[in-house]
């Protein structure tokens, strides 16, 4: 089984960057089985085609406008995903909807797509997530963990006292220094 966990978003617009931040957190907290790859997709669209193409499972993490209070976490599965991008709730739907369409055109759409979203609150210029979205992100991280576990691809937790625990973007926004 071949799995991609893809986080997308713009880290310069606070909560907009939830997808990228989630990838970084996952990388800092777990060791993943070789079948699982993690990609920080930033705000890119078509350039991600190579990374996404022909996967058995794509776990997509993104900011998602759905009318709920900031920090609400969402999960969409299977056919709901392209439909979601079609009705434009996520800021990246356009790049991503074209991306999914070209993957369909070239017969390389992932066999299954699960989308995890978090309702953004503050999308002003700046780094770091709002408190609500930090909390929402934790729910998504747990859900991703469960999803992988259900596929028999359980990640292994990195002990808390090991050095490499804070990602580039999170160290900066929390005002904390990274553990050397």
């Amino acid at each position: 089984m071949n799995v991609l966990i893809l986080g997308i978003g713009n880290i310069l617009l606070r909560d907009e960057g939830i997808g990228v931040r989630a990838i970084e957190e996952l990388e800092c907290r777990y060791t993943f089985p070789p079948e699982v790859e993690l990609v920080d997709g930033g705000t890119c669209g078509l350039e991600l085609r190579d990374a996404i193409g022909r996967r058995d499972l794509l776990l997509l993490i993104d900011a998602m406008r759905n009318g709920g209070p900031p920090g609400t976490a969402y999960r969409l599965d299977g056919d709901e995903v392209p439909a979601h991008f079609h009705t434009r709730i996520s800021p990246h739907q356009l790049g991503i909807s074209d991306l999914l369409a070209t993957l369909t055109l070239t017969d390389s759409l992932p066999a299954r797509i699960v989308l995890f979203g978090v309702e953004p609150g503050d999308i002003s210029t700046g780094l770091g997530l709002s408190q609500e979205v930090e909390t929402g992100m934790e729910k998504v991280l747990q859900a991703v963990y469960e999803e992988l576990k259900s596929c028999g691809l359980q990640p292994e937790a990195i002990p808390a006292d090991e050095a490499f625990r804070l990602g580039f973007w999170s160290t900066r926004q929390n005002g904390k220094e990274a553990v050397p």
Binding site: N10, L12, G42, T43, C44, G45, G95, T125, G126, L127
Partner: peptide, 19 residues
């Protein structure tokens, strides 16, 4: 975002301006 930062890391931020 960049004011007060180390000029050596500015490029990591600027390449996130646009998708």
């Amino acid at each position: 975002i960049l004011q007060g930062r180390d000029p050596r890391e500015a490029w990591l931020f600027t390449q996130r301006i646009c998708g």
